[in-house]
Simulated assay, not measured.
Amino acid sequence: MAITILPPVAEDLGPYQADSDESIGMDSDSDSDVEMTGSTRPHKRPRLHSKNIGTGIITPGEVVTDDPQWMRGHGTYTNPLSTSIIATVAGTVHKTNKLLSVHPIRARYTPEIGDLVVGRIVEVQSRRWKVDVAAPLLAQLPLSAINLPGGILRRRTSADELQIRTFFSEGDLVVAEVQSVHQDGSASLHTRSLKYGKLRNGVFLAVTGTGGSGTPNSSVKGGVGSGSSGAGAALGATTGTGGVVRSRRQVWTVSTANGGGDVNVILGVNGYIWISKHADGAAVASSTTENVSIIRMEEMVSSSIYSSQNDDIPPQTRREIARLAQCIQVLVQSGVPVDEHSVTSAYEASLQVDLEVGDDEDDEDEWRQEGREYLEGTKAQRVLELAMQDK
């Protein structure tokens, strides 16, 4: 069978052809001594333009761009038989110089060193706990990375291993800090500071958690704190495009209205949130942790930090805890990033909406005012409008 050799065809660069011809002409004048027969100088490399790059939501298998000048990043792959960059996840395209990456709409939390996370104990082993922190792999909490009752600083022995369930057991909620990240992506946690430890006297809320970007998740996740009494109640959130903002203050106290007192809010970067009653003893210990010597630490750390019994919480405080949880749900469902400012603004807006609703309703219909803390429908839209006015 005969083989036909086709002549080379010049690549059509479109708007860049004129620039290339001019550069060739200028170079040929300056290098007139060089004989250019049978070959041409390489064309000037065209500048990168985004007109051929897909915009909006990219679906898996969709070609992001055919331009060979771009390099592929996370969420993409290259066909070996072509120069096309194809998306592997559904998300939006992000450009960093020549690098193209697709940030997924739905993703799991990626641990980073120093992140404050809220997790649930799912497995107890001989020297460590396995913690669910909404990451692809379970995190590890070693026995050597917690505070012993009484503030004892010593090596963990076999006696401590036998009593490992007295500290944390399956189903307990903990707040911890990411100490290290292994090669496989799993995280190692620690609770050595008095600001961390077992969570109780509050409500667990699961929202998106990719450190500021959205992660929609239609499943409802809810849970309760350890113990049989108190304000523990299962609350779930259907997440939207918002998320917990990274590099912001994650723990603060809200002075609630309607006699609710102070309420603590813990925003885990992984998207797990804890809203609880403010405990004076824990607040004093956490505020003075940095200035406490090792000798005085044993006076502040007691076995109560591993207690599974909730305190008595008045109905007013429970009501305000539920209001804060619903304010966070309104923000997440509307795609607003969750941080201290947005949560506080939404809470203040909900109080203002209550005053507006109270003016419209009759005082005789008390049964209609019992559910005023329920923020859905038009009330949620009004809360969001008032909260966004402060930004």
Rank of each mutant, 00 (worst) to 15 (best):
V245P: 08
L267M: 03
R249S: 14
N217V: 14
A231C: 04
G260K: 04
T239F: 06
K277M: 12
T256P: 02
N270D: 05
G242L: 01
L205N: 02
W274D: 08
D280K: 13
G223C: 03
L205M: 06
V203Y: 09
T239L: 02
V265M: 04
A257W: 06
T253Q: 11
A234M: 09
G268R: 05
G236I: 02
G202C: 05
G211A: 02
F204A: 09
V284C: 06
V203L: 09
V269H: 02
V207I: 11
R200W: 11
G259Q: 07
N217E: 14
G242T: 05
K221Q: 12
G242I: 00
S229R: 15
T215N: 14
G212K: 01
S247I: 05
V245I: 12
G230A: 08
T241Y: 11
G209T: 00
N201T: 01
A285V: 09
A279M: 10
N258V: 08
G223M: 00
A233C: 05
V220C: 09
W252V: 02
D280F: 08
V207C: 15
L267E: 00
A233Q: 07
T239N: 00
G222W: 03
V220T: 06
Q250V: 05
A206H: 02
A279N: 12
T208Y: 10
R200T: 09
S255T: 13
V263Y: 00
A237Y: 13
D262Q: 12
K277R: 11
V244N: 07
T238H: 12
T210C: 14
R248M: 14
W252M: 03
G271M: 00
F204K: 00
G214A: 07
G209E: 03
I266Q: 08
V207F: 14
S247G: 13
A237C: 15
W274S: 04
A233D: 10
N264K: 07
S219A: 14
A231Q: 00
S286K: 07
V263H: 02
S255A: 14
G232F: 04
N264T: 14
